[in-house]
């Protein structure tokens, strides 16, 4: 419906980025909404540390990949004219770290991506993080779903094939 806001207004949103294909979608949506709501945005990338390392070990700081995830977000935000804060986190589990960081930053919205998995016939890999955030976050949650590739969409039932990516809270 034209004129209907995409999401409830927020003051501060946390964008959960995992270095995947949905990151640009999450950042673009976050920036567009933040610009219209005059809100602030924080991009968060959490590096999972396995039990072979101490949590305080320096794993992420020299990690070019981890740095580039947040820098990419910063570049997109610059084009939208939105100031983006970036946080790099090390944690044992992504879900709790994301929820705790959002709570500490007093964010009222969390945006997360949901990638489409081509293997095994194609489905959405919902994993552990998205359900954890949906169940535990006190803030509102927007899931940005990756579009289904056109070639695969033809094979889906008509009801599913018509769906496109979009925020869902």
């Amino acid at each position: 419906m034209p004129g209907t806001p995409l999401a409830a207004p927020f003051h501060r949103a946390v964008l959960g980025l995992n270095g995947g294909a949905t990151d640009p979608l999450v950042v673009k949506l976050g920036c567009e909404l933040a610009r219209s709501f005059k809100a602030t945005v924080v991009a968060l990338h959490i590096v999972e540390v396995d039990w072979t390392h101490d949590l305080a070990d320096d794993i992420a700081s020299g990690n070019e990949l981890a740095a580039s995830v947040l820098d990419m977000a910063e570049g997109i935000a610059e084009k939208y004219g939105v100031t983006l804060e970036t946080h790099l986190i090390q944690a044992r589990d992504i879900g709790p770290a994301l929820v705790d960081e959002a709570a500490e930053l007093e964010a009222d919205t969390i945006l997360l991506g949901l990638p489409y998995r081509k293997r095994f016939g194609g489905d959405f890999a919902i994993g552990r993080t998205v359900p954890y955030v949906l169940e535990n976050a006190s803030a509102g949650v927007i899931i940005v779903r990756e579009p289904i590739p056109a070639t695969e969409a033809q094979a889906l039932p008509p009801a599913l094939a018509g769906t496109t990516s979009g925020p869902a809270s």
Partner: peptide, 21 residues
């Protein structure tokens, strides 16, 4: 690096400074 505790006892996390940024 800054150690932060979570809501549950095991949910610790470390915030990493990004000097290049």
């Amino acid at each position: 690096r800054r150690q932060l505790s979570g809501r549950k006892p095991g949910d610790r996390r470390v915030r990493i400074e990004r000097p290049h940024s």
